[in-house]
Design a protein around this nucleic acid. Sequence first.
RNA 1: GCGGAAGUGGCGGAACUGGCAGACGCGCAGGCCUCAGGAGCCUGUGGGGGCAACCCCGUGGGGGUUCAAAUCCCUCCUUCCGCACCA
Length: 830
Amino acid sequence: MKRYDAVTLEAKWQTRWEKDRLHEARDFDPRPKFYFLTMYPYPSGDLHIGHWYAMAPSDAAARWRRMQGNNVLFPIGFDAFGLPAENAAIQHGIHPYKWTMDNIARMRRQLRSMGAMWEWSREVVTCDPEYYVWNQWFFLKMYNRGLAYRALAPVDWCPKDHTTLAREQVVGEERVCERCGTPVIKKNLEQWFLKITAYADELLDFSGIEWPDRVRTLQENWIGKSLGVEFELKVQGHPGVSFRVFTTRPDTVYGMTFAVLAPEHPLVDQLTTPDRRADVEAYKFKAARQSDIERLSTEKERDGVPIGAFAINPMNGEHAPIFIADYVLLTYGTGAIQGVPAHDARDLDFARKYQLPIPVVVAPPGWDGRPLAEAYLGEGTMVNSGPFTGLSSREGWERIADYMEQRGIGQRKASYRLHDWLISRQRYWGTPIPIIYCSHCGTVPVPESDLPVRLPEDAEFLPTGESPLKLHEGFRRTRCPQCGGQAERETDTMDTFIDSSWYQYRYVSPHDTQRPFDPEVGRYWLPVDQYTGGVEHAVMHLLYTRFWTKVMRDLGMVGFGEPMLRLFNQGVILGEDGEKMSKSRGNVVNPDAYVNSVGADTVRAYLMFIGPWEGGGPWNSRGIEGVHRFLQRVWNLVHDTTETGKRGNGETRKHKARGPQPETRQSNDGHELQHWTHKTIKKVTEDLEGFHFNTAIAALMEFVNYMYKVKDEQAGATPWREAVRSLVLLLAPMTPHIAEELWASMGESYSVHQQGWPSYDATLARAELVTLVLQVDGKVRDRIQVPSGLTDAKAKEMALDNEKVRRFMDGRQVADIVVVPGRLVNVVTK
RNA sequence: GCGGAAGUGGCGGAACUGGCAGACGCGCAGGCCUCAGGAGCCUGUGGGGGCAACCCCGUGGGGGUUCAAAUCCCUCCUUCCGCACCA
């Protein structure tokens, strides 16, 4: 028998498939289209086992779709802009372009070894001007619609990477840079933003897409919508001066005993009285310094200082002292709040510290009129609230909101935690922002006809942290497109999440030079039917790409508002020690080593077998041997029974003496084998549909174990041939190379991957004999084999006749008999 | 603190809509084959009791619903993830 030499046969078939362009997706093909997309990799230089874990099951699912009769688009590309390339330039003097392209070349080879059905002719590389020109084009479209704007704002700055970051890229309690883990600091800078907040409400709507609840929840929390009322507080002794506060509790407005402005609030200077000036300045200085240092201070005591002015409660005209305090953030709501200590824990802390009154205005059920021990946040009956006294707080909320709206005091309003997307990066290796600053004309967009604004190739990469573009005179100095005078280019580049916000559209027609993609071809392929990738992108990439698609819809470029109909998040593969893989821990698994020993098919199948795909889990080098053993068994089984004259010798016949298992007893006519074939097809089909690769492979293992048991009596017969054919077809999506080789060795016509997915006969998939569980009072007492179509009456009869059932009934009367057809009979006694 | 997910053998995990707990694989044990094996094949493998047929217990803890609970409800514990002064 031929040896299973995975390494050789995998290389052979990969070459053949590529030569035959087997994986080409054809635009406008009449078969139903299926756009299957897996997140493109960053070209770090080495294909990690984590890439395999994300991509190999995706490939299996895409291949399965194709066998199901779909015209499948399964593209790949590289997320090629980003900091590591620039850092390599600074440290080793290699140009980012060269570093990136060398890595891509290396990763292409590694990716090919996976045997995936990617269509390389559609490859997209985002650092190619052919690609990033469209980033600039989109930017201009957004600029024209007011969706891209420049503003001075306190922004997050990573001191190690020397660049600003989007809020989404600052993570954890320590507020560290998502890329390098350095704590970020705040800086006031003029930066470019994209107005994602304009779509906040739409982004909360997930109807029409099947995304995991997990991602949905993360996005909802991130957007952080809360409904409330924004109303005006006039300032005593300052006619015409007022500020607005946002509250989700207008029902508590009668309990306001102070008001707080954020220390950076623009009215602070104007309202501060001379006697308070020194304290206020000192506090502002302290607050500014503190926000510049780490903000670990959740436990920190709440403090503030009065500014000497008083706000007038619009409901009852009472005067409330105005404070500044750093627990109020300028970046949320209006940067000012009403202080209602009885009904807000933070306000209560503050009021206690400064001995402010704490009147109760919403009485908890059964309240005895005494001061509350802690802030009461729940609903109750309104008290001390003028004409609203006596209403339920729920009702009072609405009535006070109505009152404020009628009198022009305030309006109902939604507030969001979501901020606009800061896209400026003070780095070289990204898309130049196509803007020119002219001393006469101001901010001028680069005309579309002048695109792309290319990155200069001769930039210098110095370890100073200064952006190379800023120091590049040839790039920076330019002419104003409007007046022709001397002008300067914007030297910041775009966040690389811009690239990934629309790459799925570029794959549709990756070489179109006239537009981001061909709308005709787009109408055929779009949107993405299935997207797969890690959950770490939940509030970054996955939120941005939804936003981008809605903008594209509003630009008339696509006829839908959601980029990906279904999303699946795979888990994370861990090191053998159960820890996250890292070089420093020394637990990194190198896929290439396994590919070169046991083959890509084994690595693929093992990663799918390890557990549910969404779960991830530790790598186990013994576990992979088990899967390799399985493929070896498949190989031997197919060869042993297809190579003529090799079966039925005395050696294999020996097993027969032991006697078949009960379920296989009557398998001589091949019926039982047929049943196994069909039930396995059913199981694998259903499992692949839901990405349950682990149980699909387990079912195939059971099938093979069964086939080994019966092969001496079955091999050569028609049901056997069907079983072997089905087995190979069912394996094809997951282990494409061995399936192709076995398919060829069976004399079937090339290619196994162009065959239809086997269908099953529901009747055959159902067993002829089923195990009926017999219970007495809910305890299993016996199991009997019965024909599958048994009537309930007959089942009852058989149960009552059963010797063990009778024994355990112990002479008691039958109270009830529960029958679950084909499964169990439970005899309940009195 | 708020929000989410999850707790099943020595390990990874399986179990449709409440109906045989532990499929499949790893590991372990015994056997066969072999000059040899860390290769291959076969058998066994949740815990406890029994010579055995068999019996009892068992899905994080406690309680409940039900003829029947890993699955549904209540409660507590643990772990992981996200957000965190968001007014």
